[in-house]
Design a protein around this nucleic acid. Structure first.
Lengths: 226, 226
DNA sequence: CACACATCTTGATACTTTTTTGATGTGATC
DNA sequence: GATCACATCAAAAAAGTATCAAGATGTGTG
């Protein structure tokens, strides 16, 4: 859920914005003045800031400049001032958008979505490695000794769970609950079958498992850096 | 020197924009209509596009949608229509900003600078290749072994989605939501039919697919560098 | 308006993969 | 040597997939 900080001194405006944003799936923080706003951005680390230009303590532009000293998070300016010079000053100071009051909620929401789009960095490829095993979680590709291996949905879910907790022991119940669902916590036979299958596919020697080790009486564990 | 494409049917507006932009250090291209605009973006590869909503051939929104099929370059909309629905539609279709006429040159320039800041240095994949398959996303031309192949709108939408995420597994739901819409997420039969059709058209041997592989129980994946 | 044409939707059927289930084997511990 | 926890194998059941083709819908044209 994206988090927004609303910076405005008028409580009615904050209220209006909060309602509109919350009904559209945002988590909302509020600041009534500039100093508090800068503090809250640092503390709460919101995904977006909606910043009014008229504040009791600091100028909105000044708040923006201070924020831009250390963060590039999207800032959308709200203002009653519609003059070019104000807009240009704010935009050049690092604002991502500038809306003149009165504005419609729909437009603000659309412009927030644009700002979120812009903020998204390129998705980095997340790859887990351990010995001969290599798992590309974003592409759903598993390789062993550089050979791609085909896993069924359940086998993959199991392996992904092990990777998410690599190094730690996962109890039988934990695994069954996560992979099959809470009503399967006693189907320990499933574990035997699927761990055998998984070892068959990803271990160099399935009879002497080096990646997936059994912790007798407890559960299973995935070794990293084998 | 940043390069801008101006898309507007009125020659006076183009002139006005050209002068303002050139005196501020931009190199300017012009398009009087939508089809020419799409072509020029592919040919000239400008850094920015200024797009008027009222065009003689295609709707501005349609031009934007077509561009977003293959490129994320910044597009700033100009329009006489100031209604929320128009703005929201354009922004959600992928526009980076929306200016209502009349606007000031200074504001436009400032918003261009914002758009340039946001521009992500992406390697634009105008043409996708994999094995015998070749797809020109900007011209919507699909060839297999240098033979042009005709795809229906849905088949093309499907292929384009696969290309945008090539290498990754796309789940059934993802595909149905993107191509047919959120209310179709359970119509898995559509997938069977359309993937069969697509394979028939783009695979060398549709019975042994090498480009579009099935991940049973999960979804489908487009292989790159087959 | 009626026509041909392309495309989308739907149903039937054969086929493949995956999951579930049961039977049996192994080794350690008491 | 009986018991326990785990491993392995393989068949049955279930779920998912491929393909063909007919019906429905929509499109533009004369």
């Amino acid at each position: 859920m994206p988090e927004v900080l609303i910076v405005d001194d008028e409580i009615q405006i904050r209220r209006f914005l909060r309602i509109g944003l919350e009904t559209n799936g945002y988590k909302v923080y509020e600041s009534p003045n500039g100093h508090d706003a800068i503090l809250k951005v640092a503390q709460r680390k919101p995904d977006l800031v909606i910043l009014d230009m008229e504040l009791p303590d600091l100028d909105g532009l000044e708040v923006l400049r201070r924020l831009r000293e250390w963060t590039r998070l999207p800032v959308i300016i709200l203002s009653v001032r519609a003059s070019d010079v104000d807009k240009v000053a704010a935009l050049d100071a690092g604002a991502d958008d500038y809306l003149t009051k009165p504005f419609s909620m729909d437009e603000l929401l659309a412009r927030l979505r644009v700002a979120q789009r812009h903020a998204q960095p390129l998705a980095e490829t997340q790859i887990f490695k351990s010995g001969p095993l290599q798992v590309d979680l974003s592409r759903r590709i598993v390789t062993v000794n550089d050979q791609t291996v085909k896993l069924t949905p359940t086998e993959y879910a199991l392996l992904r769970l092990l990777i998410q907790h690599h190094g730690k022991v996962l109890t039988h119940k934990q695994i069954l609950r996560e992979v099959w669902g809470p009503e399967y916590v006693n189907e320990t036979h499933y574990l035997r079958v699927y761990f055998a299958q998984l070892r068959q596919k990803i271990e160099d020697d399935p009879a002497l498992p080096r990646l997936i080790v059994t912790e007798a009486g407890v559960g299973y564990r995935l070794i990293d850096e084998g």
